[in-house]
């Protein structure tokens, strides 16, 4: 789908997966069903996943295995979701959260 996707690898075979649509900050993107949200965003060229609470610094993912919380975002209205371990699904609504996010009523 993008140049960051590996379509041929000398050792590994990546299985065919279903393409799904998702929405990030109001724009439509495509990714593979079941891959982590952070991975789909990365492949779509999006590296800034949030801004830090105090200094408003851009942050991306770091560990990719759900240990460091660097990748938290708002997914389908749920804030503080660790996107590196949340599987992508059709129609997901993904937004950046500023700071600690705000819980909607």
């Amino acid at each position: 789908m993008t140049s960051l996707r590996i379509d041929k690898h000398p050792v590994l075979n990546f299985p065919e997966r279903k393409i799904v649509n998702f929405n990030f900050e109001g724009k439509q993107y495509q990714g593979f069903a079941g891959e982590p949200v952070a991975a789909a965003l990365h492949a779509a060229g999006i590296r800034t996943l949030r801004h830090s609470p105090q200094k408003n610094r851009a942050r991306g993912f770091f560990c990719a295995i759900g240990r460091c919380s660097s990748c938290i975002m708002e997914v389908d209205g749920q804030i503080n979701t660790m996107t590196c371990i949340t599987p992508l699904a059709e129609g997901m609504q993904i937004r950046m959260q500023k700071g600690h996010g705000t819980i909607k009523a």
Binding site: H42, A58, F62
Partner: peptide
């Protein structure tokens, strides 16, 4: 060291070898 684009080696491996996505060029 907190800029987007700085990754742990394990994160790079997960992205690239499990999910088939390059970390960058």
């Amino acid at each position: 060291n907190d800029l987007p684009g700085i990754y742990g080696a394990g994160g790079v491996q997960t992205l690239m070898n499990v999910h088939g996505i390059r970390p960058g060029q």
